[in-house]
């Protein structure tokens, strides 16, 4: 700080989110320099702060992977579950405690690979959980193996000549399975990531926010973008604002809110209505 001697003024941090929502004693975190997971977590806690939620009213659930480590840093009720099982755990919590804000942060492998069936059923049930899918399009934690969302042609440890399979679209999957809030954003525009996560957190039903995120260490390094700055540039140049994940424009990736249905009943409420009747 340069203005410490300014006698009249007091300098107040513009955001109180880190003080309120981080277990600061566990920082620095384990993520690599320039990894997008930290930016996304920042946006999540900014929204918790904006919404005025209490730490004890938020249940923050993760599975396994680099993304899975997020639960260790959040000052809330946190659960670090096994690989692919954040959503069934979150579902159980929401059924038992519908008064809680239940948030799950999933990797792409965790969420739609090993946990794919749980993802489909959470969507189908419209359980009141916010699922933030950190899609870095690779298995980061285990050394950069191909994931269900790795683009066709992209390199990974297990696809050194390029992935021959087509990739899975998280938003189309969520829509097809019945999620009632579905959006895709990317880390080159963190404020927009925060705005959309804020809407998803307030949604009464299963809300999916797919966040395209940079893994410079594996995805970037294997695909000609070892610097996080290059990866953010790629997101900017290869995405466009759309109304549907089916929209097409020069082979770019559609970004935006694709569904926001406020009429379909949320599962824990329907269940309670049934036995209270």
């Amino acid at each position: 700080m340069v203005n410490e001697n300014d006698a009249e003024a007091s300098f107040v941090p513009m955001s109180s989110a880190p003080d309120k929502w981080l277990r600061k004693e566990h920082l620095p975190h384990i993520w690599c320099p320039g990894c997008g997971i930290g930016t996304i977590l920042r946006q999540v806690i900014e929204q918790f702060t904006k919404l005025g939620w209490k730490n004890d009213d938020v249940v923050f659930v993760t599975g396994i992977g680099c993304t899975g480590r997020a639960s260790g840093y959040v000052n809330a009720q946190t659960l670090h579950t096994i690989h692919g099982r954040a959503l069934p755990t979150a579902t159980g919590i929401k059924m038992a405690r519908p008064d809680m804000h239940v948030v799950a942060m999933l990797g792409d492998g965790d969420g739609v690979g090993i946990g794919g069936n749980h993802f489909i059923h959470a969507a189908k049930r419209n359980i009141g959980v916010t699922a933030i899918v950190v899609n870095n399009r690779i298995y980061g934690m285990t050394g950069g193996q191909v994931s269900p969302t790795t683009p066709q042609g992209s390199k990974s440890t297990t696809t050194p000549y390029g992935n021959v399979e087509p990739s899975m679209d998280v938003c189309k999957l969520a829509l097809g399975a019945g999620a009632t809030f579905v959006a895709r954003v990317h880390t080159a525009n963190p404020v927009y990531v925060g705005q959309i996560i804020g809407r998803a957190l307030q949604h009464d039903g299963f809300a999916v926010v797919e966040v395209l995120s940079q893994c410079p260490t594996y995805f970037g390094r294997f695909n000609g973008m070892p610097d996080p700055v290059q990866m953010l540039q790629w997101f900017k140049e290869n995405t466009f604002m759309a109304k549907s994940p089916e929209d097409e424009k020069e082979g770019k990736i559609p970004i935006g809110v694709f569904k926001d249905d406020k009429t379909t009943p949320e599962l824990s409420k329907s269940y309670r209505n049934l036995w209270e009747a």
Partner: peptide, 13 residues
């Protein structure tokens, strides 16, 4: 907003 490491604080007077 973008710093992945929670390293930056901006203060308002």
């Amino acid at each position: 907003q973008i710093c992945p490491d929670f390293a930056i604080t901006v203060y308002k007077k």
